[in-house]
Design a protein around this nucleic acid. Structure first.
Ligand SMILES: [Mn+2]
Ligand SMILES: [Mn+2]
Ligand SMILES: [Mn+2]
Ligand SMILES: [Mn+2]
Lengths: 225, 225
DNA sequence: GTGTAATGTTTGACTACTCAAACTAATGGA
DNA sequence: TCCATTAGTTTGAGTAGTCAAACATTACAC
């Protein structure tokens, strides 16, 4: 098995490559996610390349090989199932489970993972609405469009929250902005760069920048993307 | 928090000191438990002493300070609660949970631990019958006398199994020799060094050496030591 | 096109943990 | 009491991961 450190890098590279237009992860952002200096990230990128988990080119970024991708998706599966367990079974608040899962994900064997998945009823999304990869390494594309792109009058269902920060999640939960909730857009103020939505807990106004971290989908859409 | 390595040493030293007549842990046995060479154990003993977690004297063994003991008991609490969770909630076999808990114990925060304890109904023994320390670091003395010390006709209750080896635990479970089970000693054969007991699953004969790893108590005894 | 800012690389040094092997101390029969 | 066995220690070296800081490259705004 890869070391805990290596697992964290793989997951970070996976996420960065998904978001990047070039499909390559840069050292500065990689280092920031993992919490090291850029020099350290460069050293690790080379090491992962030597282990055939990643491709690395001087000044050209890192990206994962098939082997590396498989390993990364495995870790994401562990992470999201653990988060689901912490919320569903242990009743912990969704604002803290990300940090907890970040450590536990490295300590769980396939046997425990399978038992967890069974206990939870084979969930397909985690508490933040992110898809949980299946045991064969298949990961659906995440759902929804930014809430900030909605217009006044739109009635949508919240699909997922992309920010894992405790503060933002506490705010979202307090106003009923959770995956599965239905909200109606009351107003969009371009000058104020704000959006107001009607949720179960009442109306909320937030910056478009904040609304960008909330993904919404057509109110009707069920299980499929 | 102490590193995973340090936690493993603390737990090992704690156990060794409990068993040793002098109250000191020797390097050879310590190294064997942790899985390193004796030289490495010596180095770590010095390091723990410097961190005020242990007392160390050249050629005189290691033992834990109050601080070290507290840390060790905390880890034992995590270990045993996790084992209980794995058996009770995840339905894993008790023969494998020790190895699983050995890794997970280092990844669990106080918040998760408390939630686990609550979910499990504040258990006071783990699946092997070992007492679970409370959150203040109090640990009851383990119960029972070796089954090998019983005589023919004795009717006893199994309190705990001291061997965590998968093979032995599978054997014990197959014959109904689990904590809480009632058994009657049918015969003790000093020449053959064997003992035969009647359990729910039928009669079993085992070596006295094996019976020494099973602790029994008066059939009547309930919750208290 | 040029210069500056951003991004990436390299080096040397450090911590944590480990082993192999040469060595030293304690112990316990004969 | 002596000496072999067992137990413990020390040293030198290696791996994994990290940082600071000097340095190199690239991107892009003008
Ligand atoms: Mn992690
Ligand atoms: Mn999540
Ligand atoms: Mn452990
Ligand atoms: Mn146990």
């Amino acid at each position: 098995m890869a070391t805990e450190t290596v697992e964290n890098y793989l997951k970070a590279i996976y996420t960065l490559c998904r978001e990047s237009p070039t499909g390559e992860a840069g050292m500065t952002r990689l280092a920031a996610i993992v919490g090291v200096t850029t020099g350290t990230a460069t050293a690790m990128a080379k090491k992962l390349a030597k282990a055939k988990l990643a491709r690395y080119q001087r000044f050209g970024g890192v990206s994962l090989t098939a082997k590396g991708t498989r390993a990364a998706v495995d870790i994401i599966r562990r992470h999201r199932l653990i988060e689901t367990f912490l919320v569903q079974t242990l009743k912990l608040d969704w604002s803290i489970v990300h940090a907890e899962a970040e450590r536990i994900e490295h300590a769980i064997s396939p046997v425990v993972l399978e038992a967890l998945d069974k206990l939870l009823g084979r969930p397909d999304v985690d508490p933040h609405g992110d898809p949980i990869p299946d045991s064969d390494g298949r990961l659906r594309d995440p759902r929804g469009e930014p809430l900030s792109d909605c217009g006044a009058g739109d009635s949508v269902r919240i699909a997922r929250i992309t920010d894992q920060e405790e503060r933002f999640l506490l705010f979202a939960a307090r106003h009923g902005l959770r995956p599965g909730a239905h909200v109606t857009v009351l107003a969009v103020d371009a000058a104020a760069e704000s959006i107001t939505v009607q949720a179960d807990a009442g109306p909320v106004t937030l910056a478009l920048a904040a609304a960008r971290k909330i993904m919404a989908e057509d109110a009707a859409e069920g299980r499929r993307r």
